[in-house]
Design a protein around this nucleic acid. Structure first.
Ligand code: FES
Ligand code: FES
Lengths: 144, 144
DNA sequence: TTAAAATAAGACAAATTTATCCGAATTAAA
DNA sequence: TTTAATTCGGATAAATTTGTCTTATTTTAA
C-alpha cells in the first residue's frame, strides 16, 4: 500500500509528536530504535519531512527533530503520505492508466474510486495528535 | 497501490476474457498492444497467471491465451491480485509492522482496517465478466 | 516427417527503491 | 574560540521490480 519510506515516515512522525508533547527533541538514532527501522534511511526520510514542513529540525548540540506542540493536531496522515509518496494513491488510476479520468474510465474506475476516496478521507481525517495519544495510553504500538 | 505486474495482469485478463467470449485465443503480442504494456514482461505475467490457474494457455500453432467461457464470471479481481501481488494488501499492516495483529495493533489499525476490508470486499465481489462487458459496451477502456 | 507458429523458461539488463557511509555545515556549551 | 554534538547532503551500494532477449518445447498443418 505505502512505500517503506512512507511507513517509516509515519511511524517516525508519531514518535516525534509523542516526544514533542514533553518538549523532548529526538535523534534519528533514537527514532530508528523506537520504530525498528534502518537509522541512515530513516534520517533521509526525516530530512524529506523537514523539507516538506511536516516536522522541524534543530541542528547542532542539543538539537534533534521536533514538532511544534500546537501543530501536532493539525498534521494529518495525508500530509506525510503526500510528502513522501506523492498523490498518486489519492488520484491515480487503479489499473495504472496514465491518469484517472471520469470521461475515459478504466473498468475498475467506478468501484475503485469509492475505496480510493475512502482511503483519502481516512488519511485526511486522522491527525498526529490522535495517533500519539493512543500510543501514550498503551493501546497501540510502533513496532513488533 | 498495485504493482505494475498486477496492473498489467488485470488488464490482460480482462482483454483475454473479452476475446474468450468469442472463442478467440490471443497472443502476448496482441494483448500487449491492446493494453499498452511491454510485450515480454506481459508474457512473463501471463505465465504466472497460467501457473495460478487464472487463465489457460495453448501451446503451438493456433495456440494462445484463453479463459473457459463458463469460468469468466467466477474469476474475481482478488484471484488475479492474489496470484501476482500476494495477500499483503488484504492482510498486511498499514504501517508496515511484520503482521497486522488485533491484539497488538499499530496506531492506524482501527481506521486502516476499515479501508483495507472495503478494498478486499471490492476485489472479491468484482468478476471478470462484469469488467469485460463494460468494455464491450464501450463504457470503459483498457488504455490511454 | 517436416516446417511453422506458438508458449515456457531462464539468463540478462535497466530502473527504482531501500539502505549505508562519510564529510560538510551548524549550533550550543565550555 | 574551541570542541563536541548534531543535522544535511551527496556518493555509493544492495535489493527489488520492471523489462528484454534468446533458446527450448509443444502443437498443428502441410
Ligand atoms: S480511470 Fe482507472 S481508476 Fe479512474
Ligand atoms: S496492526 Fe497495523 S493495520 Fe493492523
Amino acid at each position: 500500500m505505502f512505500s517503506k519510506a512512507c511507513e517509516y515516515g509515519i511511524r517516525a512522525s508519531i514518535f516525534i509528536a509523542l516526544n514533542s508533547f514533553q518538549d523532548r527533541r529526538v535523534s534519528p538514532k533514537e527514532i530508528a530504535a523506537e520504530i525498528d527501522s534502518p537509522v541512515a534511511f530513516t534520517a533521509k526520510i526525516l530530512q524529506a519531512l523537514v523539507r516538506h514542513n511536516v516536522i522541524n529540525s534543530v541542528k547542532g548540540a542539543y538539537g534533534g527533530f521536533e514538532i511544534e506542540k500546537e501543530r501536532i493536531k493539525d498534521i494529518k496522515l495525508s500530509d506525510i503520505v503526500d510528502a513522501i509518496d506523492g498523490d498518486s494513491i489519492y488520484k491515480g488510476c487503479g489499473l495504472g492508466l496514465q491518469a484517472c479520468d471520469e470521461h475515459h474510465p478504466c473498468p475498475m474506475h467506478d468501484k475503485f474510486k469509492i475505496v480510493r476516496d475512502e482511503l483519502r478521507n481516512m488519511l485526511e481525517s486522522t491527525n498526529l495528535e490522535t495517533l500519539a495519544l493512543d500510543i501514550k495510553e498503551g493501546d497501540t504500538f510502533l513496532k513488533r
